[in-house]
Every structure is written in structure tokens, then in C-alpha cells.
Design a protein around this nucleic acid. Structure first.
Lengths: 202, 202
DNA sequence: AAAAAACCATACTCGTGGTACAGTAAATCT
DNA sequence: AGATTTACTGTACCACGAGTATGGTTTTTT
């Protein structure tokens, strides 16, 4: 089984790199198989169609992100610090590989709705809802111990993390300035600070 | 000349509606000509290719947005109020037609980079930079009269408006909740308030 | 009336996604 | 060791959408 899953993940690696660089539609199967050193037939052996590939990529991305945030959570002392450190780490990560963030895949899927089947759209939705619940949990811990300076909905606040990242990625691509995404995350950090931090400093 | 430009804008209307609903790639020329009551030949008479169509749509969108924000600017009293009202109007507009906002086109273009030629990408870039300079101007007026509670870059703050809108649109589509985009804009309003408003209230 | 602009009709090429199916090398099972 | 399954290769084919070519027709403008 080792050989099979190796090829499979190689296909996914090549595909992901290409998709993040040029978009899903613009990435042809021909190109993927060329980079993966297999044949068209080989591709269709592993993935019944392009949809299945997108589905697999989103699924894998969720797992990667989950472990990443698990590590981040262990670093902070209080819930607010955890959140701020998490955002800082995220910003640094985005600085390192600005267009490598797999959030792009979700965005692509979101804007190419009818192009994908229900499986892919559902996976996409689960990803977004997963982020919401994760960040919601973190913000709940914060409001339990800190006073909120403005009355905002926690679910919406949780969504803001994803929205800022996705929007930052788009803007970053549009103006061709890779640093934009990380900057936006840092602005979100500033907002969280203003919302919850007791003193103006820190 | 009236007849020609009428057909042209009808093509663009139909195309825009379809693209916003299903994405650029998923919208076929066949479909556009069917909705526009012309033939394929007619389409290619007005637009040399699909790229030209995208270009025209982005260009038109910029003009529409410019006039919209011109009106919004006349409503506020001080610069901060103008900004807050502007964001409020924007949120209401997004509530009314959540997926109708043409920002989607820019986002689509951003994520389908290689699919478009330089013309389209440049138009897209100009759109994003236009937003930046517009909002930057507004924020500059604010910092001239208000104290900033956190030291953030004004260009980045200006970008945040676009980022929140684009990100909100993506998230809204991903989780299939049309209200998300407007909520995110209102959160941005909350941030601006916390950043600049002298008292906690108002 | 002449010329240009705004189309229509038809037929073709080419790239890409996807299917079908026959064959083969290597790992796994019995 | 032989049989079966897994993981592929190779070839041939279909459908569909973008784009080209070209010649003809109607409408508007001059």
C-alpha cells in the first residue's frame, strides 16, 4: 500500500503547488501528470475526476491546519495571549509562504461553485465551519476572563479570522504584494487587542 | 452608435450576473449569447475574446463604485463619521445583494491569474490600488483630527476595507450564509470606532 | 446612393476533461 | 510457487467550450 499512497500524495503535492500558483481551472491534468511522473491513466486511477482531487486537497489541508493550531495553542499563557500569539504565528507563516497558504484552495472552490460537485462544496463548507468553531472556542475563553470593549458577536469575530486571511490573500494577489496578507492578520491582532486588552499598552 | 453599445452592455449585464453566480470559467460564451439574444459571432464582434469581456467588466465596476462612494462621502459630518457611515452603507448594500457585489469579479481574477492576460491583471491591480488610495485618503482625514489608539499603518488600514469585503464574500459563499459579508463589514466598523472614537460610546 | 457599423450563419481547429478497455509489473495472499 | 490484487501504462475515443475564418445580411450613418 506504501507505493500507491506515495504516488497519490505526490500527485496532490504537484497539483496543490500548481493550483495555488495558477488556480484550479488553469491547472490541467496533463500538467499534473507531467510533474508527477505518471500517466493520465495513472491519475484517473487515483482520482475518478478533478473534483475528487479538489476534495482530497481540502481534506488534507484541514488536517494540516488542525495540527498547526494545536501547537500554537500550547504556547500562550492566558486565552488572550494565546490568541494574539496565534495570530502572530499565522502572520509569520504567511510572510514566509504568502501564496502557499491552502486557504487559496477554499477560496477557489468558493468562487467556482458550479464547477465543483456537492462533495467538494460540502468539504469546503466544513472547512470554513471548522475554523469558525475553533476560533469561537478561543474567543469564548477570552470573553470569560476579559471585558469586551464593544458588543460584537463571537461567531462573527471568529469568522473574521478566516475572512481577513482569505481577503488578504486575494488582495495580496491583486496588487502583487505578498506582504499584504500578513499585514492584515496583524491588523486583526490590533483589533483583538483593542477589544480585550485591559491597558492601552501590551 | 446607440444600438451597438446597448447590445454591448446587455452582454456585459448577462455575463456579470452569470459570472457572479457561477464563476468566470464556469460561464460559457454559449450561455452568455443565449441570454443576450445575440449569436456567437455577435459576441466576438464586440469582444475579441473572454479576456476582453473580463477587462470591460472590471473597468465598468470601478466606475460604478467610484460614483457610489462619491455619494457616500457627502453624508457624514466629520471624517470619522463619514467613514463609519460609509461602512454602514456598504454593509446595508451587501445585505441587499450579497453575491451581487462586483468585488467578486476582482477576486475571481485574482485567483485565476494565469487564465487572464496582462490587460486584465493590470485592470484588476488598478482597481485594488484605487480602493487603497480612496480609503487611505479617508483615513488620513481621520488621523488629522483624531488620536489613534494603536499605531497602525494607514495604507494597511485602507487595504483592510477591501480585504474584509473580499474575504467576507468568500466566507459567505463557503458557508452559504449571505449575511456574513455585511457582518464582517460591521466588525470593521467596530474596529475603526475602537481605533479612533474618543469615548467608548458612539 | 454609398459606406461603414452591427450583426448572422456555418464550418472548422484545438485544448481539456472524461471514458473504455486491454495489457503489464510488482506486491500480497494462499 | 502460483493466483490474485494493486498500481499502474498505452491507445483510442467522445463531448464540449474557446477561438478563427469567412462570407453574407441588415441597419445606421454620411
Amino acid at each position: 500500500m506504501a507505493r500507491g499512497s506515495e504516488t497519490r500524495s505526490k500527485i496532490m503535492d504537484v497539483a496543490q503547488a500548481a493550483i495555488l500558483a495558477k488556480g484550479f481551472e488553469a491547472t490541467s491534468i496533463e500538467e499534473i501528470v507531467a510533474g508527477s511522473e505518471i500517466t493520465r491513466s495513472g491519475f484517473f486511477y487515483h482520482f475518478p475526476d478533478k473534483n475528487a482531487l479538489a476534495h482530497a486537497l481540502i481534506k488534507r489541508h484541514i488536517e494540516v491546519e488542525n495540527e498547526l493550531f494545536g501547537r500554537a495553542a500550547a504556547l500562550g499563557e492566558g486565552p488572550l495571549q494565546t490568541m494574539l500569539i496565534g495570530l502572530k504565528l499565522m502572520a509569520e507563516l504567511l510572510d514566509d509562504m504568502p501564496n502557499g497558504h491552502p486557504g487559496c484552495i477554499v477560496a477557489t472552490a468558493a468562487y467556482q461553485d458550479r464547477l465543483f460537485n456537492r462533495d467538494v462544496r460540502d468539504a469546503n463548507k466544513r472547512a470554513a465551519l471548522g475554523w469558525r468553531s475553533r476560533f469561537r472556542g478561543m474567543f469564548e475563553d477570552i470573553v470569560a476572563t476579559h471585558r469586551m470593549r464593544d458588543d460584537v458577536d463571537i461567531d462573527q469575530l471568529a469568522d473574521m479570522v478566516s475572512a481577513i486571511i482569505e481577503g488578504g490573500l486575494i488582495l495580496s494577489r491583486a496588487v502583487d504584494e505578498p506582504s499584504v496578507t500578513a499585514q492584515q492578520v496583524r491588523l486583526l491582532q490590533s483589533y483583538v487587542k483593542l477589544l480585550f486588552a485591559p491597558e492601552p499598552g501590551l
